[in-house]
Computed example of a mutant assay.
Amino acid sequence: MEHSSGSLVRRLRLQQLAIFEKVAETGSMLAASRELHMTQPAVSKCIRELEQHFNETLFTRGKRGVQLTEFGELLRRHAQSLLAGLRFLADDANSWSAGISGQVVVGTLLTASAKLLPRAVLRLREIAPNIIVKIRVGSNDALFPELARGQFDVVIGFLPEENINPSFIHVPLYDEMLCAVVSRHHPLALDAQVDIRQLQDMAWIIPTVESVARRSAHSFFEAAGMAMPGKLVESVSFLTNLGLLLESTMIALMPYAVAEQFVRAGLLSILRLGVASPFGKVGYTLMADRPPTAATARLLAALEQVAGIDAPGGL
């Protein structure tokens, strides 16, 4: 069966796509019906109507719920784009009528979630308290594809060294530095200056091999005149790293802005090594072909305002 755009406009309903997306998200007709406050038969009927319209099976049924077929995956990609477009329209309409309302969905890396993003959100609440901010943490590999599909309005954090995808606009806010940190109770925590030679045989926590921060770790040791330590734990989980630091005498590499938050909380100390090692640029990423909504534009303005405060002041 061939499908023209006119035929789709006449026969498809946005509610059908919203129901389809909820079933795909939950993996269950029953769970979707509960979240949508509908009966399960009504949800099932909607899915059957979509399958009849396209003459394709959208889900395979099993004991543990439903899974998308290949055609279902195709339809979901387009449904997500359409529903995201509706959300952008709703946000713009709300902003037009109220001036300070709307919603911003943010994808962020831990690099920015420690200080930059919280301060920007607090600044946004001062100027537009009715804007709802939804935040999800992830890696660039996961966040950028979702930004392209319209699941995020903006991604905030560590920027790629090269912009190889013209679909994205990367806006740098400041240069982040890498530093070495230890528990506040570490023997070296209070030393005004630490001799690099003391650190070679100690246990370190560094980013994993596949992490974009691994190259920065190599640069750090080169700048310090050290070989890569032999005793290593490779981790990009800040909570895990913090636990290891608090329970041992290990040393960890962290972005300065992240480490500074733990220092202020009285948990960690930054070792004074006399080494300034670049970590990368911190900023935000937008889609080149999708202008930011009014609510998103206000968050970006807040980011710009607080970026100077968050820029590392040196080690």
Score class of each variant (00 low, 15 high):
residue 13 R to A: 11
residue 189 A to C: 01
residue 50 L to G: 00
residue 140 N to F: 07
residue 275 V to G: 01
residue 171 V to P: 00
residue 60 T to F: 13
residue 69 T to P: 02
residue 248 S to Q: 00
residue 312 P to D: 00
residue 146 E to P: 02
residue 90 A to M: 11
residue 260 E to Y: 08
residue 209 V to S: 05
residue 62 G to S: 13
residue 235 S to C: 11
residue 186 H to D: 12
residue 175 D to F: 14
residue 288 A to T: 02
residue 206 I to P: 12
residue 24 A to P: 03
residue 1 M to E: 13
residue 158 F to I: 09
residue 41 P to H: 01
residue 203 A to C: 07
residue 304 E to Y: 14
residue 263 V to F: 01
residue 31 A to V: 14
residue 173 L to A: 02
residue 248 S to I: 00
residue 278 P to C: 07
residue 289 D to I: 15
residue 83 L to A: 01
residue 165 N to R: 09
residue 179 C to T: 15
residue 218 H to Q: 09
residue 129 P to Y: 08
residue 34 R to T: 12
residue 87 R to P: 00
residue 94 N to W: 15
residue 119 R to K: 05
residue 53 H to Y: 15
residue 222 E to H: 11
residue 73 E to R: 08
residue 50 L to I: 03
residue 306 V to Y: 09
residue 191 D to E: 14
residue 199 L to F: 11
residue 264 R to C: 08
residue 55 N to G: 14
residue 223 A to M: 12
residue 148 A to G: 03
residue 240 T to D: 15
residue 15 Q to I: 08
residue 113 S to K: 03
residue 214 R to F: 12
residue 113 S to M: 12
residue 157 G to I: 05
residue 178 L to N: 06
residue 188 L to A: 06
residue 216 S to Q: 07
residue 262 F to A: 12
residue 161 E to H: 04
residue 236 V to M: 04
residue 138 G to D: 12
residue 149 R to W: 05
